[in-house]
Amino acid sequence: MGHLRLGQAAVATAVKNGIMKGYDDNTFRPQGNTTIFGDDLFINLGCCLAQLINH
């Protein structure tokens, strides 16, 4: 399975389990006109992992 499909499957699973939500147009992006940096990525990843552990 390619990286893109693997990523799509992971996001779909997270959405299905209520761990993540996107926008009504089925996209994920930062709020406002911002850029996601490495620390933002790890904070979000940590939150997702915490949800999985506590789910």
Rank of each mutant, 00 (worst) to 15 (best):
L41P: 00
A10G: 06
C48S: 09
C48Q: 02
K16F: 09
D24F: 06
L45Y: 09
V11Y: 12
G32E: 01
D40L: 01
G2P: 11
N26Y: 09
T13M: 08
N26G: 05
M20T: 08
T27D: 03
T27A: 06
F28W: 07
L41R: 09
C48T: 09
G7W: 08
L49S: 01
G7T: 10
A12N: 13
I53H: 04
G18S: 04
L45S: 05
G32T: 03
T35E: 01
Y23R: 11
T35N: 08
D24G: 13
H3P: 07
A14V: 01
N17I: 05
G2K: 12
G7V: 08
N33R: 13
P30W: 04
G7E: 08
G46M: 03
M1R: 10
H55V: 01
G38I: 07
F37Y: 09
C47F: 08
V11H: 05
F42H: 03
P30I: 05
D25H: 07
T13F: 06
H3A: 14
M1C: 05
N33H: 11
F42L: 10
C47V: 02
N17P: 00
A12S: 14
H55G: 15
K16C: 05
I43Q: 10
C47Q: 12
L49M: 05
Q31R: 10
L6I: 14
K16M: 09
V15Y: 05
P30S: 09
D40T: 01
G2I: 11
V15D: 02
L52Y: 03
M20D: 01
M1Y: 02
L52A: 05
N26H: 13
T13K: 14
R29K: 15
G22K: 06
T34P: 00
Q51K: 15
A50N: 08
K21T: 15
T34A: 12
G22T: 03
F37L: 05
I19D: 02
T27F: 08
M20H: 03
L52F: 03
G32C: 04
F37R: 12
K21F: 08
C47T: 06
D40H: 14
V11E: 04
